[in-house]
């Protein structure tokens, strides 16, 4: 799982849902049933149903404005659905939230040191003081930020901020990681680093649900794809089929690079 080493992608079917060491109920499967979200009468998401039951990496694809970020926020419990239901195992998103970490498209960087940004969520989630620092430093090492630990976090570049956001999420040791466009606006080198991180997180058993509008990234990272367009889920299928035989004209057009109007 080294950053520079070759990472072999395991097959799609990983661990089935089960009890974790703490005996807490498993978060998988994630069940989304007839999910809808309206703002002032306008349906931003409508009739979305799917079920994710493996620790595979699921990528939410779709053009801008399709509702990808909104779907992630709803799954995290930051918003409540207008209609339908989301359950993580037997828990509601609100109950599950403490075991889920989310990395936002534009991560909020606290006015503290880089290290302080990583230890902060650990404190909120009740990690004992003695462990916070070492866990944070490990996460910073994994993300290549260890040398910047003492720096003020707000002086970081865009790519470094994105890696810091991942380090923070990693240090929390979540069971599920929600990533919203983790590499938008990053250069190829930074994108590569972030993708390697996502791969090694996946390999360590973290369920990843991420959005992107980068087809190449979906191809590189996804095990299965949720394709959203105009607030509707058009398909949920394994990544190979998505790219080779999508059986849907809008997806074919999207994969070809056409604009979906």
């Amino acid at each position: 799982m080294s950053l520079n080493g070759v990472t072999v992608k395991p097959s799609v079917t990983l661990a089935p849902p089960q009890l974790d060491e703490g005996g807490a109920a498993a978060l998988l499967p994630l069940k989304v049933v007839e999910l809808g979200f309206q703002v002032r009468g306008q349906a931003l998401l409508e009739g979305i149903s799917f079920e994710l039951d493996t620790h595979a990496t699921t990528v939410v694809l779709g053009p801008n404005g399709a509702g990808k970020t909104l779907l992630l926020r709803l799954c995290h419990g930051l918003l409540s659905p207008s209609t339908g239901k989301i359950t993580w195992g037997r828990s509601s998103p609100g109950e599950a939230a403490a075991r889920i970490a989310m990395v936002f498209q534009n991560p909020v960087v606290l006015r503290r040191s880089v290290l302080g940004n990583v230890t902060y969520p650990l404190r909120l989630r009740g990690v004992p003081r003695a462990q916070r620092r070492s866990r944070a430093l490990t996460a910073l090492e994994r993300t290549g930020l260890a040398a910047l630990a003492a720096r003020p976090a707000r002086a970081l570049s865009g790519g470094e901020r994105q890696r810091l956001a991942l380090a923070r999420a990693w240090a929390m040791e979540p069971e599920v990681l929600l990533l919203d466009e983790p590499t938008s606006n990053l250069d190829p080198q930074a994108t590569h680093t972030v993708e390697e991180l996502v791969r090694s997180l996946r390999a360590s058993g973290v369920k990843i649900l991420m959005t992107t509008h980068d087809l190449g990234q979906a191809r590189r990272l996804a095990d299965d794809v949720l394709f959203l367009n105009q607030g509707r889920l058009l398909r949920h299928m394994p990544v190979e089929r998505f790219f080779n035989a999508p059986e849907h004209s809008a997806i074919e057009a999207f994969v070809r690079g056409d604009l979906l109007l």
């Binding site: 930051l78 936002f104 991560p107 909020v108 006015r111 969520p121 909120l124």
Partner: peptide, 21 residues
């Protein structure tokens, strides 16, 4: 939104905002 995502309680939120400000 970040603080909500982390599950910060109201008092923790206030302390964080005062400290960062």
């Amino acid at each position: 939104e970040y603080l909500r995502s982390l599950g910060a309680k109201p008092l923790q939120r206030v302390v964080t905002l005062l400290w960062d400000g």
